[in-house]
Design a binder for these strands. Structure first.
Lengths: 210, 210
DNA sequence: ACGATATGAATGAATG
DNA sequence: CATTCATTCATATCGT
């Protein structure tokens, strides 16, 4: 994910053999989902192009169904993928912003790879709200009169019913915020500043740390 | 890992230039961060002496800024360093401790297959739709009847479908099959909006998405 | 030169 | 959403 190039993905095996387990026990080698390149490609398209960020249950279903064509996949995989992708994007930004202002007098090598891909999406990216806007009107709104469906958590993809909880869609609309977030200060800077209360560096000793 | 002591002079020249092999503008192919001895020393001090384990965004920034003095470094490097350091420490401990059935004749240390120890759950549960795994227990039910696994959370990934519909999960359960099945999306989404308004897949390429 | 190791990087899966 | 854990891939480095 990084601007870093070496991205070779780690899905050595386009397996699908997953099924392997057909047999008995066997060490389920590979417990976790290993997306195929096509799956990843599509997920990214959805993310960057269509602006999908937090798909709701129904959307997750559609997506996973669609991706199933390229390999084994479950709804939760899709769910986690979006969650992680979004989270990491933000996280990175959090500890990445160096130097508040654009005052970068001396260019350091590290500047090269800050952002590399297309500019358009760089920032707010998803401007392409396109999809959401229209797409998500989702019928979830009405609860089937079930009263309280009980699935307290709104994780019901894979479930047929689009339970009302899903937020996803709406929430996402707020995506275009953030515009200004790149000021010098980030909201996350917790109060804790100074990991270095003193000069640890000066404390040169402890050569023997593990 | 740690036992490795000699990181002594691996840096002939505290190169600051990131040691990148020359300019990596063109070919930034993979130059991963190689911490200088001073950076490592400080990181360890922070880790062992100050107890820093999972620095937050702000701390990461401080640290990396501070360490920058000794060589090129980015926030993510610091982030990963702590993550890895903690993880490996834990992992190592896992061996020494556990080792229920030794039998490790010639296994390399990496061979281990760990069991989960304390910590969280292990609810592999989700038999996963794609059950390639075992055989078809198509039976939906989550917990194998083991009694109460106590689904800590009421997350229902893969709830079995309610009434007859297609239920993605089951259908899919048979290994990769199912290929032909969907097409028309699923019944439930009656009026659905679809994330795929068109053939995104067809819109191939855009490989460059981050 | 290799092969083994140590460790940076990435990411799926969870938990809170 | 933020954070954390576990695993795995990739590669820099060291030993022989």
């Amino acid at each position: 994910m990084e601007p870093q190039q070496q991205q070779n993905q780690q899905h050595p095996n386009e397996d699908n053999n997953g099924g392997a387990k057909g047999n008995f026990i066997c060490r389920q080698t590979s417990t976790r989902w290993t997306p195929t390149t096509d799956q990843i490609r599509i997920l990214k398209e959805l993310y960057y192009i269509k602006g999908v960020r937090s798909p709701n249950g129904a959307e997750i279903q559609q997506i996973s169904t669609r991706l199933r064509k390229y390999g084994k996949i479950e709804g939760k995989n899709v769910f986690y993928w979006f969650q992680n992708h979004k989270a990491r994007e933000r996280q990175k930004k959090r500890f990445t912003n160096d130097v508040p202002t654009q005052q970068r007098t001396t260019l350091k090598p590290e500047d090269y790879y800050s952002y590399k891909y297309s500019s358009s999406n760089n920032n707010p990216g998803f401007s392409s709200a396109s999809s959401n806007a229209g797409a998500v009107t989702v019928g979830q709104t009405d609860n089937y009169g079930y009263g309280s469906v009980n699935m307290q958590e709104k994780k019901n993809w894979e479930c047929s019913v689009p339970a009302g909880g899903s937020n996803g869609a709406e929430g996402e609309s707020m995506s275009n915020i953030n515009y200004g977030s790149r000021l010098g200060i980030n909201p996350y800077s917790s109060s804790s500043y100074t990991v270095f209360d003193q000069d640890l560096e000066a404390a040169e000793k402890i050569e023997t740390l593990p």
